[in-house]
Design a binder for these strands. Structure first.
Lengths: 228, 228
DNA sequence: ACATAGACTTAACGTTCTTTAACAGGTTCA
DNA sequence: TGAACCTGTTAAAGAACGTTAAGTCTATGT
């Protein structure tokens, strides 16, 4: 299956690199540029399936850029990344044809969620959720229904429990880095959110304790690894 | 099929043009005027099916304008565009017969949904409803007739029930954000309206409970997701 | 005008989810 | 070994949500 290609235009080098890494980790073929002019240039050369554009950029702002891009490819999905409380911008953004927008700060989960939603809509197919479910030892984990099942006994997980368990499953038998998980689910990787995550790890361990072969292992200073 | 005609009165040229373009892109036959006097003049000449009026306008303010317009056509739907924190104005606006209002800044999606909802209500008694309907598990939901059907058994939904269910359907298997739903249906996203929305979620869940495969899932702190 | 019914809101109370606090161990490295 | 940091666990606090019932309003018909 061919990878989805994303053009990411973000002038903040830190955020840009961060986003690029996350998207690549999620199997999106991502190209990062740091200003609008460059974005247009790159877009002309190669085709992309989705654009992620920061609104505030030097040389060429996101809105104008979107118009130019739309002139080249009227149907390409565009998502804007915008600073908070710039709702006026949002309006103008929709005019130039954004399919969606995110106000900073946002979590990776949210970004990925919207990307998937838009691609789903763009591909014409209606409905059909990915119906993702994982097998964890003797457990079955239905992500969309947030249901963890063991021998016909089901437990309804909370939103956060479910999000964390999904990340663990996605990276099973390899290290899920703390910061990655925090940025993905909690937006901020500060002290309190880190402690909150610890609490959820404890909860998940308790839920999964019925199957001895399943274990959430801590990798000191790095993160967690789901063994199963 | 003939286009819906909208009279848009907005004195800010940027916003006005923006709105006009967007509405035209959405197949609404839109006329833009930049002050109230002009609006009245144009309205006398041609008939419109909906009015979008800015409250703060030179020459003739939106409220007075609405009264004049209503004198000419008592049943035409009117939506006010108003700056925030002008609650007094809002109240007076409803007295002069607004069907709805939007506080700036607002998103295009919100405006569009409001227009559709109002036109639907206005045309309720007339003929040829577009008959948009959704299939929700074993249910059928006729949006224009506000009818939820299960095995030949139909339940007539109230306006709010219907509007909320429509938003859920439109975003099925995706998160419908609380704030978006509140601003789209209840106008204000304050505490009380949020609680009111909770009540409606309970109602809808009860109506839909006959099909086990259908579920309105809460995403804590974000919104609801209709699974089906 | 009055009564009635239906729709919507507000109130009240209970439950669940998430975060924060508090305390107890662990790991690393100088 | 001891200081600094990281992790495990439980409990409590705070916020969000679920549900039912009572209140308010509006429209409608007599």
């Amino acid at each position: 299956m061919k990878k989805i290609s994303i053009l990411l235009a973000e002038d903040d080098p830190n955020l840009g690199q961060l986003l690029k890494n996350y998207l690549i980790a999620r199997e999106y073929d991502t190209t990062l540029v740091t200003d609008g002019a460059q974005a247009l240039q790159v877009f002309r050369k190669d085709k992309y399936q989705l654009c992620l554009l920061d609104v505030m950029m030097p040389e060429l702002d996101g809105f104008t850029l979107a118009k130019e891009i739309r002139a080249l490819d009227p149907h390409i999905p565009v998502i804007f990344l915008t600073a908070k409380n710039l709702k006026e911008d949002v309006i103008e953004g929709f005019k130039s044809g954004a399919d969606d927008y995110l106000t900073k700060p946002f979590s990776m989960e949210e970004l990925l969620y919207r990307i998937e939603a838009i691609l789903r809509r763009a591909s014409g197919k209606q409905a059909d959720p990915p119906a993702t479910s994982y097998t964890i030892g003797k457990f079955t984990f239905d992500v969309t229904k947030q249901l963890l099942t063991y021998n016909d006994q089901s437990r309804k997980l909370t939103t956060k429990e479910s999000e964390l368990l999904e990340l663990l499953c996605r990276n099973r038998n390899e290290v899920l880095e703390r910061n990655f998980a925090l940025k993905s689910i909690w937006i901020d990787d500060n002290y309190f959110n880190a402690r909150s995550m610890d609490v959820y790890i404890t909860k998940l361990r308790k839920y999964l304790s019925r199957d001895e072969s399943v274990e959430i292992l801590n990798i000191h200073g790095k993160g967690y690894k789901l063994l199963c």
